[in-house]
């Protein structure tokens, strides 16, 4: 019963936060609403027994990504409110597209199964990749079956880091050579 309450409360909060992001005119407000939506999502993860992901969600999204956003907003430090009204055609197009997506999804709802299997806390020999709650399972999976993707993801983060440093350097081009190394 608790779960249901949590689900309805936080999904409402999440959808509210999401809509507010889309509707708010001030980016600072939008970022704050976004944090609300992301934290609510973390709670929804909890109701799905994905404790590790919930922690990750709070740490990575709410803690790092949104701070980055806020940081950029503060750094640019100008009037970032939108001056123009959105284009009516684009709005109509967007509504039609999203309506279609929702319609497809709602038609489909009902095909799935609703029985939730019980969860263990560690993988069992018979079913090594069954859904488990502990973060230990992540460790096992990532370092065995998903070893290759995790390495690739490491390089992905490296690329992102190199790229961010390259693009963010405040150097005059052409006139003087880049001074700082990466």
């Amino acid at each position: 019963m608790n779960e249901e309450i949590l689900f309805y409360l936080f999904s409402t909060l999440m959808l509210f936060g999401g809509s507010a992001v889309v509707l708010s005119r001030n980016p600072v407000n939008a970022a704050l609403y976004m944090i609300l939506a992301l934290v609510s999502l973390a709670v929804l993860f909890l109701t799905l027994d994905a404790f590790f992901l919930a922690a990750l969600q709070v740490l990575v999204y709410a803690g790092a990504v949104m701070v980055l956003f806020l940081f950029v907003i503060m750094m640019l430090d100008v009037d970032l409110r939108e001056r123009s009204r959105p284009n009516i055609m684009a709005a109509a197009l967007g509504l039609v597209t999203t309506g279609a997506v929702v319609a497809i999804l709602l038609t489909w709802v009902g095909e799935g199964s609703t029985i939730r299997p019980s969860v263990g806390s560690v993988p069992t020999p018979g079913n090594p990749l069954a859904f488990v709650t502990g973060s230990k399972a992540f460790g096992y999976a990532l370092l065995t079956k998903y070893m290759l993707p995790i390495q690739v993801a490491g390089f992905l983060l490296l690329v992102a880091m190199v790229g961010a440093i390259l693009l963010g350097r405040r150097t005059k081009l052409k006139s003087s050579e880049g001074k700082d190394g990466s």
Binding site: A50, I115, A130, F131
Partner: peptide
């Protein structure tokens, strides 16, 4: 969660 499969997570 509902299919008891870890890959999605």
């Amino acid at each position: 969660r509902y299919s008891g499969n870890m890959d999605g997570v």
